[in-house]
């Protein structure tokens, strides 16, 4: 997978994210301090902020199907390169999980993004990140 260079750009999420429906614009920011993680931060206020990572760094074979309607919402063609990010949750025990079930999919060409809701995803919502 060729890493896409999508940093410090504002991406429009026309439907917001579940739970944060009023936030429609997010900054996708990478920095050496965060690597290999990416910051996903509201551009419409202080909250919310997320730490995210490309799912193929977790599972090299990761692939969630995109419906035609998802492609339309992203303004994407079949060959359009897309950035995939999954959100990280810190757990009370100090560990962390990633939500592989509902990835963010971003089209850097149109600056549009969405959170993919797959009803019968093969991927868990709380895949553990191995602890260090």
């Amino acid at each position: 997978m060729t890493p896409l260079s999508v940093t410090n750009v504002v991406i429009n999420f026309d439907e917001g994210l579940p739970g944060f429906e009023s936030v429609r614009r997010f900054v996708i920011a990478a920095s050496p301090a965060l690597e290999p993680f990416t910051l996903v931060q509201s551009a419409d206020g202080a909250e919310p902020s997320f730490l995210a990572i490309e799912p193929r760094l977790i599972d090299p074979s990761y692939a969630s199907p995109l419906a035609e309607s998802d492609m339309l919402r992203l303004g994407a063609e079949p060959k359009t390169p897309l950035l995939w990010l999954v959100l990280i949750s810190m757990q009370p025990d100090g560990g962390a999980t990633v939500n592989l079930k509902a990835p963010l999919v971003i089209n850097p060409t149109t600056m549009r993004g969405l959170q993919l809701l797959v009803p019968h995803s093969q991927y868990p919502i709380d895949h553990p990140l191995p602890s260090v």
Partner: peptide, 15 residues
Amino acid sequence: IRAANAGAAADPKSL
């Protein structure tokens, strides 16, 4: 997914 997103939201200062 809404519950998962709420759990993933973090203080930007701590990221």
